[in-house]
Amino acid sequence: MRRAGEFLRGALRRHEVLLLLVLVVEWGLFYHYGTTVNRRGVVVGFGTLDRQFDVLRHSCEIGLLALALTPVILTAGIDLSVGSLLGLCAVVFGQLWHDAGLPVGAAAGLTLVAGALGGAVNAGLVAGLRLPPLIVTLGTYSLFRGLAEALTRGAVTYTDFPAGFLFLGQERWLGLPTQAWVFLVAAAAIGVLVHRTVTGRAFRVLGFAPEGARYAGLAVGRTLAIAYVLAGTVAAAAALIYTARIGQAKADAGTGYELYAITAVVLGGTSIFGGRGSVPGTLLGVAAIAVLKNGLATIPAVIRLNAAEEMAGLLTGALLLLALALGALGQAGKVEG
């Protein structure tokens, strides 16, 4: 009996479990209050499969960025430039397809390369020259967005993408929104990288003890570079999905996404000081935010106020603060005890 209690308390101390509880409560509330039957007797709102797919569809881009940021933050780094890189990659893709006349597949492939190159700029400065990632990526945050604006002269919007490409962002495949497959594959791949490979172990060690990593003979520079280049590549994938969902590519794509992605990662229990955190945690963080945003949009009172997005943002911020404060108090308790 006592062991069961201890197990429960141990589980509750795990961030992921708490977050899962939050998610279940959220989901239950929205299912209860957000599902209604309309005049024609059809069930609408949160409880429908369509709505659940919507939640999924709309969380893919920020979700991808959050996945991309998880390894970076595990190394005690940060990448503020992923949102801007998303915008730049969207523009690059538009130009490659529209202006250069490349087939969509080739344009998409080259866009991923462009994303990797963008990540490599960060990697070179952070891993090569050992500059502080906050400032480096603040610089590339401006640089990438600025390049996107310069390439489009601040005005050009690329549209009329072929249906085959839009399928990625607007249709379903094997029952799920197409981009959800990309997201799931990315989640699985990054999850395996972080939790099942020596590189993932090295991310953590770098976050906990950068000097200790060097003394243990780990490839510090290479590990850091992998994290940032990966982040750039995934940002490019997010750019493709974004473009396919919206049906247009322009320079302001993904503005402000980096902060929401970081919020999701931190809410998911990854420590901003590095070392601690998990990919499932990030997925739960993304889900908690996405369900909140979409769920609120199904509650009649909120619909009347037309305030779902804002309330979701407000609650996300509050949730993040709460998670932080609880974490700090829990940590204090651990040190004392």
């Binding site: 200790g212 243990a216 003979g217 601690r276």
Partner: peptide, 24 residues
């Protein structure tokens, strides 16, 4: 690395020989 478990600390410098291909 204080935060890491004992087992992970013990294998930390021997990744190359213990985990061929990089798989833990």
């Amino acid at each position: 690395v204080l935060e890491l478990p004992v087992a992970q600390n013990i294998t930390l410098a021997a990744h190359r020989t213990l985990f061929p291909g990089g798989w833990l």
